[in-house]
Design a protein around this nucleic acid. Structure first.
Lengths: 152, 152
DNA sequence: CCGGATCCGTTTCGATACTG
DNA sequence: CAGTATCGAAACGGATCCGG
């Protein structure tokens, strides 16, 4: 299915389709995860992820996510060479989706996620999501540390 | 990213990756949606969906979803020609993911989802998901009708 | 008719090399 | 650091064919 835009199939206005259009391609969602949980903000940060995304794919997906208003791109104030990406409100609202996907994956696919984090996500889901927002609002863009530990 | 299996990237055991492996390709999730919300159970039912999936792609995805234990395939007792697909427990557990994706899509992408359904999903999320399970357990495989109306 | 399998042109992906 | 350019490999998807 890919991520193409001229595909004739894309006419359905099912909300699930709208979501798949945004990140049904696999890479986009990983980028959002990196931003949301891992404190990655720069082009190079994403490249260093364990999934080894190629530079051209990364550039393409960043562009698409920006066009969709899920992330925003801005030059670093202190160092003009650097570019920082951040989640917009729309992007932050993907937190519940991410959380449910992570929980499902952890339940069925034998992953390396810390059970503590998963428990936190399931037993206190709403608070967990609220904290993601809070941390973001506070401008603390570092990796998740306190109660929800590295979501890897 | 597609759905390929020999990709070198697939080594991360991040639970999100596990989930993306399952249905990060776009079509798979639509099939699950058809099963979960639209009462579609047969090969032809999926073909008739508004997204116009090709027969070869459909066959491939059904096989993959079955291999992953998300759906199960069985011949109809009354008519040996027919094949019925159904969600397994693992597949039913995708309900929260689907719901969050639908809610997000409906909030941001101007879809044709009935506001009533969306409200039901957000304001009474847990009950909504519980009802999906209940309906399924009761053997009522028809399209969703009562409180959550056509999810399109 | 139902549930696919096969063929085949087109599109997209993705690894590497290269550039500002 | 933050991307383009290139190019072979893979996936898509429409049409058609086939066994039951």
């Amino acid at each position: 299915m890919a991520v193409g835009k001229k595909s004739a199939r894309r006419r359905s206005r099912c909300p699930l389709n709208a979501t798949l259009e945004a990140f049904g391609d696999g890479w986009s969602l990983l980028i959002v995860r990196d931003l949301m949980f891992k404190g990655r903000t720069m082009f190079k940060d994403f490249l260093d992820g364990e999934e080894r995304i190629a530079t051209n794919i990364l550039a393409d997906r960043l562009k698409k996510l920006e066009a969709l208003g899920i992330i925003a791109r801005e030059r670093d104030a202190s160092d003009a060479r650097r570019v920082r990406y951040r989640l917009t409100e729309k992007g932050l609202d993907l937190a519940p989706v991410l959380v449910e996907m992570i929980v499902w994956g952890a339940r069925y696919e034998d992953t390396d996620a810390p059970p503590r984090t998963i428990r936190c996500m399931t037993e206190d889901r709403d608070r967990f999501i609220a904290e993601i927002r809070k941390r973001w609002a506070a401008g603390e863009r570092g990796a998740v540390r306190s109660s929800p530990k590295s979501t890897s």
